[in-house]
């Protein structure tokens, strides 16, 4: 098992969409400086669970979360928790690249601006440059920061979204199938990027691609029908799964 201390701890989490019980009694620790992969068939609830880690489920009518999720020991569903700050601390990257229909610069600068992270234009410029560099996009866009973010290619857009997420200096980054809309080359770039970002942030990535999970993550959780079947070091999950269902899934013998 990884020795890194836990950044987020979830215990006995259930999520309901109206009458639909989407997540059943999931307990999991997300560790600092680790990449944690959530794998499992479609509709197994891994994205639902991911969205409950930064309370994005709040925006879905009828969604209800019970159980206990803590960030650095603080209950994120507590009344005192400010959801706006929580989402700044726990950033998110979505399945489909969704840059704002604004310039590249504005896309990255938006988060720091609304949270007042920069005191001057120069400081904001530095944050934008740093974020774009960390996202591996700076060299490609530095000469056209005022171009529309939506004019970039799909892979570039996704890296822009990652730059936007890290611009507010989050502690955790949640990625919901960030490569499923991208071609293999762009996917490889994002995977490299996840490697580079690993030391700075706790990263949780939902993926359908088993090889991707094996390549980028240190820890892997396998979900099925709303339950957490198995959670452990990625090397163990892929070479020596304890559960029969995990083994079926990762070997592609699905049925």
């Amino acid at each position: 098992m990884s020795n890194n201390p836990p950044k987020m701890t979830a215990s006995h989490v259930d999520v309901y969409y109206g009458a639909n019980h989407a997540i059943r009694d999931v307990s999991i620790d997300v560790c600092q400086e680790d990449v944690t992969a959530f794998i499992g068939p479609s509709g197994c609830g891994k994205s639902t669970f991911l969205r409950s880690l930064n309370r994005m489920n709040d925006t879905i009518p009828g969604a209800r979360v019970s159980g206990d999720i803590r960030l650095d020991g603080d209950d994120i569903y507590a009344r005192e928790m400010d959801v706006v700050q929580l989402r700044a601390r726990v950033g998110m990257v979505f399945q489909k690249p969704n840059p704002f229909p604004k310039s590249i610069y504005e896309n990255v600068a938006y988060g720091p601006k609304i949270h007042g992270l920069a005191q001057s234009k120069a400081e904001l410029d530095r944050i934008v440059e740093r974020s774009l560099s960390r996202a591996g996009l700076w060299n490609e866009v530095k000469d056209r920061l005022s171009d529309s973010g939506t004019a970039l290619s799909g892979g570039q857009q996704q890296r822009l979204c990652i730059a936007r997420a890290i611009a507010v200096d989050p502690e955790v980054i949640l990625m919901d199938e960030p490569c499923s809309a991208l071609d293999p080359v762009a996917t490889a770039r994002i995977e490299e990027l996840i490697h580079d970002l690993r030391g700075r942030y706790a990263i949780v990535i939902v993926t359908h691609n088993m090889q991707q999970a094996a390549r980028v993550s240190q820890r892997t959780a396998f979900f099925h029908l709303g339950q957490l079947i198995e959670y452990g070091d990625t090397s163990d999950i892929f070479t020596n799964p304890r559960q029969e269902r995990t083994k079926d899934y990762i070997t592609g013998r699905y049925g």
Partner: peptide, 22 residues
């Protein structure tokens, strides 16, 4: 598109900021 709303919420925009900025 809801994705624009999600994007703004995910960087920590408040509901009023989501509405007025996006």
């Amino acid at each position: 598109p809801p994705s624009i709303r999600d994007a703004a919420l995910a960087v920590g925009a408040s509901p009023i900021q989501v509405v007025s900025h996006h």
